[in-house]
Design a protein around this nucleic acid. Structure first.
Length: 469
RNA sequence: GGUCCCAUCGUCUAGAGGCCUAGGACAUAGCCCUCUCAAGGCUAAGACACGGGUUCGAAUCCCGUUGGGACUACCA
């Protein structure tokens, strides 16, 4: 029987869940699901000065929002310091690691000297074979890297990558304050958690040979590696805040659906022929590491926006009605969830979902369905609310008042009749009406819109416009 | 600087030596549909970074150049 697939996503809680991190999480999740494996969430918070509980909570929340549910964890590295201590002790005992008494200043001076003379920047191994141990000096623990030979990484995405061991330096595994460092704890945790495949960003490719030697020092089985290409900003530099919104959280707030974001992310670096839209089930079924490209991808917000509009169009209006509520409340269109009838809201959303690219945009349009405070765009008013058109609006209003069945069909009949009687195009009646009841020149079809907004509100808004003149 | 990775339309990508006159998607432009805005349909424009090999034949294999990126911490 094949060994079970066990993968992990290991974010550090020093910020919101990043787009790049979300994709790494997604690929791990897909790989686990595809192989009936286990997906583990591990919080890498060994940098205590930069990690916060709030960020940890937000990352967990965003993972759940994306639907990337983990089977184990979340583990926190700060809960596991005793384990790391044991592992470090073992290394010390076997002389695979040693105490280093060099001070930060000393190290920094040497580094600067190396840089200015164009030499490779690397720890010189001063404390490796120390005869006299300095007293009362804080000591870090360094790992003894081999200084000859090569280390080969057979990466599942990048292929065979060869590193010269002369490039490797004796890295610090435990700081002088006793806390362990990244390259050490990842390995310990991946050993302890029996991780079979490490799928992570290719910014870690250079760390891999170092980590392989730590595995070897523990005589541990070395997992498979798969290094994902990076996600870049429009200028091809590493995606960061200055490229605009880069956190999952931000997209959530802007009214993106998690399914759309996940779909966008899966196509960044991965593809399946010409297919663009994937349900979660399809992704799981179709996903494989072999179809991941090697080159970095530029993040394209336009395509994400398009996908979001596609997902909005194809989501049930009842479900959208549920999702839109927080936006309506946030924008003071309603004050609580009970204020608006869900059935009616879904009907309004039926008209809006083909023309809204985000939930936020939809909420903006919903304003003229719900609120009685219609702000009329001055330009639209000048163009369409002329004394001539208002005369017709008044005429239509009278006919509408007599309508018992305020249906789009009946409303349309009224418009067509008046247009014919006056030899007008439908547009010359529809546009003024649109401006009168929505305040703008763009909206869903006017008849359906009027039906949905309802007789009472329509008459009220019409009267107001007619009264201005 | 050193080490490593990468290179097809503006962007995401298809392409595993002949199916390539290089396909799809987003964005862009035009047309159709139409009460506006969308949606939808049709069409257009748009790429194998460059130079050498290998081969009867190369976007695909090899080498070099150039360009981009990552790492180079007692950050992760």
């Amino acid at each position: 029987m094949k060994d079970q697939i066990r993968v992990r996503f290991a974010p550090s809680p020093t910020g919101f869940l990043h787009i790049g991190g979300a994709r790494t999480a997604l690929f791990n999740w897909l790989f686990a699901k595809h192989h009936d494996g286990v997906f583990i969430l591990r919080i890498e918070d060994t940098d205590r000065s930069r990690s916060t509980d709030d960020y940890m909570k937000s990352i967990i929340e965003d993972m759940q929002w994306l639907g990337l549910h983990w089977d184990e964890g979340p583990y926190r590295q700060t809960d596991r310091f005793e384990i790391y201590k044991e592992f470090a002790k073992k290394l010390l005992k076997e002389e695979k690691a040693y105490y280093c008494y060099c001070s930060a200043e000393e190290l920094e001076t040497k580094r600067q000297a190396a840089i200015s003379s164009g030499l490779p920047v690397k720890y010189d191994g001063k404390c490796r074979e120390l005869d006299i141990i300095p007293e009362d000096k804080p000591a870090a623990i360094r790992f003894k890297m081999p200084q000859e030979g090569q280390t080969i990484v057979n990466d599942l995405i990048k292929g065979k990558v060869i590193f010269d061991n002369t490039q490797l330096e004796d890295l610090v595994i435990v700081r002088s304050d006793g806390t362990p460092t990244y390259n050490f704890v990842v390995v310990v945790d991946d050993i302890e958690m029996r991780i079979s495949h490490i799928i992570r960003g290719d910014d870690h490719l250079n760390n891999t040979p170092k980590q392989i030697h730590i595995y070897k020092a523990f005589n541990s089985h070395i997992p498979e590696f798969a290094h994902l290409p990076m996600i870049l900003g429009h200028d091809k530099s590493r995606l960061s805040k200055r490229h605009g919104a880069t956190s999952v959280h931000a997209y959530r707030e802007m009214g993106y659906l998690p399914e759309a974001l996940v779909n966008y992310l899966v196509r960044l670096g991965w593809s399946y022929g010409d297919k663009e839209i994937f349900s979660k089930e399809e992704m799981i079924k179709l996903f494989s590491l072999e179809n991941i490209g090697k080159s970095a991808a530029v993040f394209n917000p336009d395509k994400l926006l398009w996908l979001n509009s596609q997902y909005i169009m194809n989501t049930d209006s009842e479900k959208l009605a549920e999702l839109i509520l927080p936006f309506l409340i946030k924008d003071n269109i309603i004050t609580n969830k009970e204020e608006v009838n869900k059935k009616w809201l879904a009907k309004a959303i039926d008209l809006l979902k083909e023309r809204s690219k985000t939930l936020q945009e939809m909420a903006n349009s919903l304003k003229y369905f719900i609120s009685d405070l219609i702000e009329i765009d001055p330009k639209a008013k000048d163009k369409f609310l002329t004394s001539e058109s208002i005369k017709f609006l008044a005429e239509i209003k009278e006919l509408l008042l007599k309508l018992d069945d305020f249906s789009s069909k009946n409303i349309e009949k009224i418009f067509i009749n008046i247009a014919q009687q006056n030899n007008l195009k439908l547009g010359s009646l529809a546009q003024p009406m649109r401006v009168a009841i929505t305040g703008s020149t763009a909206s869903p079809g006017i008849f359906e819109l009027m039906e949905t907004i309802g007789k009472e509100k329509v008459i009220k808004r019409l009267s107001k416009v007619i009264a201005i003149k």
